[in-house]
Amino acid sequence: MSGWMGALFLRELRLSLRVGGGALIGVLFFLAVITVIPFGVGPDLNLLALIGPAVLWIGALLATLLGLDRLFQADRDDGSLDLMLMAGRPLEVLVLVKCLAHWVGTGLPLVLSAPVLSIFLNLEPLAIGAVALTLLVGTPALTLIGAIGAALTVSLRRGGLLLAVLVVPFSIPVLIFGVSASGAAVTEPTPFLTPFLLLAALTLISAVVGPVAAAMALRFSSD
């Protein structure tokens, strides 16, 4: 990582961890979502174990998408985005580095807290490992896809909900393969590796499509 990327990564990480940053709020939201599920579906431990991986994945999806609305907007509001656009650095790489830092600040804590929350949902150790592993591989895709929505809604005052609406259709494949892989690890006949590798492929595709589309949207947003 050359100098400017390191500087950007460090800045983004510091901002997300310091006062006013949103890193821990995502984990709290995740905890809140997981907590309300048993109130909705009932405290049946067998049922919870059955739907547990799906619940964790949907919680992670919502926590990721709802935490993304300030990804570019904060920089637009204080004028930083203007300077970034004329910095002479490739905007696609800038978006990628920002997403990476955002994921380390908010996505990784979700992955790390998932095993703890799995206990509430009565998951087996194998299922806990599978959910954590699929989240580790899959949540970067959610951040990268969400970055497109964040860039498209960067100029909107209340873009958070619209961001989620725009991005949810694109995150369906991630959800499908993430939950399938977690489920396959527990139920014997279905293979784990097929959906897991497809999930990894989705993350790699998102790492290309996300930054390119988001950079394009950011260029058009400046005025």
Partner: peptide
């Protein structure tokens, strides 16, 4: 470009703010 907005992050220290732009701007 020195416009109406300062492009500063209140959560970062003065030097951190300046160091970032020093290494970021080509």
């Amino acid at each position: 470009y020195y416009g109406h907005l300062d492009a500063l992050k209140p959560a970062l220290s003065v030097l951190e703010n300046l160091d970032f732009w020093t290494s970021f701007l080509a």
